[in-house]
Amino acid sequence: MVRLGVNSIKKSQKDKSVQIQVLMHYPHPNYDSEKDVHDLQLLKLHRAKESKNVKYLPLANVIRDPEEGTKCMVAGWGAVGLKKLKMSDVLMSAILTVIKRETCNSPKYYNSKITPDMVCAGTRGKTKKDACEGDSGGPLMCNGVQVGITAFGESCGVKTKPLKPGVYTFLSKEHIGWLKNTMRKSEFF
């Protein structure tokens, strides 16, 4: 089951939220958990309907690779701290900045692990914000378009030195093709 239209997990929102049954899981066929590549999965839901509190994000045919310095938003109900990894009761979001792959691939950060199908985004300076445990699968939105999916990172952007950015699966042309082809074959609509 998934819940749509929810802002608070604990507070009753029966008039705003809807529980929907997950009919099928479609993990990307080339997903590799050791290399963290192609980290995305499609869920087929039973009759999800758009409403005042549930809106669809259109899936573009091509998504431009976000340039370094682009401001993006990440959202989720993941942990709000590292000590207890307690999940947030309310939907949280943070504004992050895209970091170019060359920088993210340096030995200082992820040492050649970042592929063209990934986007790095984080914060600089004193502000320390990032996705955390439990946010995986959430959206990375840049300029009003979903460009990525929360994948992995280190220490939720608060403990590491240097501060490592989060890594997101980029909705590349190949990934969009797989999503659309899977939906077409699986009679999503």
Rank of each mutant, 00 (worst) to 15 (best):
M1Y: 14
R3A: 11
L4S: 07
G5F: 06
N7A: 14
S8P: 06
S8C: 06
I9N: 01
I9Y: 00
I9H: 01
I9K: 05
K10T: 11
Q13N: 14
K14M: 04
D15E: 08
D15R: 12
K16E: 15
S17N: 13
Q19D: 15
Q19V: 14
V22S: 09
H25Q: 14
H25E: 11
P27Q: 09
P27G: 06
H28S: 04
N30T: 13
N30F: 14
Y31Q: 10
S33M: 08
S33T: 10
E34P: 03
E34T: 11
K35E: 04
H38S: 12
H38R: 11
L40P: 05
L42F: 00
L42Q: 00
L45N: 04
L45W: 02
K52A: 08
L59K: 04
L59N: 05
A60Y: 03
N61I: 00
V62K: 15
I63D: 04
P66G: 11
E67N: 04
G69V: 03
K71P: 13
V74E: 00
V74T: 04
A75G: 02
G76Q: 05
G76F: 00
A79N: 11
A79R: 01
V80Q: 09
V80N: 05
G81E: 15
L82R: 03
K83A: 05
K83L: 09
K84V: 13
L85I: 12
L85T: 11
L85Q: 07
K86C: 04
K86H: 10
S88P: 03
D89N: 09
V90N: 10
L91G: 11
L91A: 12
M92E: 05
S93R: 05
A94G: 02
A94I: 03
A94E: 08
K100G: 13
R101V: 02
R101I: 02
E102I: 09
T103D: 14
S106K: 02
S106C: 05
P107L: 06
P107Q: 05
N111L: 12
S112W: 04
S112N: 08
K113G: 07
T115V: 03
P116V: 06
D117P: 03
M118F: 08
M118R: 07
G122W: 03
T123G: 10
G125N: 13
K128M: 12
K129C: 11
D130F: 00
D130K: 01
A131E: 07
C132T: 00
G134K: 00
S136T: 01
P139M: 14
L140M: 13
M141W: 08
C142F: 07
C142A: 10
N143G: 13
V145Q: 15
Q146H: 13
G148C: 01
T150S: 02
T150P: 00
F152Q: 06
G153E: 08
E154I: 11
S155W: 10
C156V: 01
G157H: 01
V158H: 09
K161G: 13
K161S: 12
P162M: 09
L163N: 13
Y168G: 08
Y168S: 09
Y168P: 08
T169K: 01
L171N: 01
L171C: 00
L171E: 05
S172P: 00
K173T: 14
I176G: 04
I176K: 10
K180L: 07
N181C: 00
R184V: 07
E187Q: 15
E187F: 13
E187T: 14
E187G: 15
F189K: 15
F189C: 15
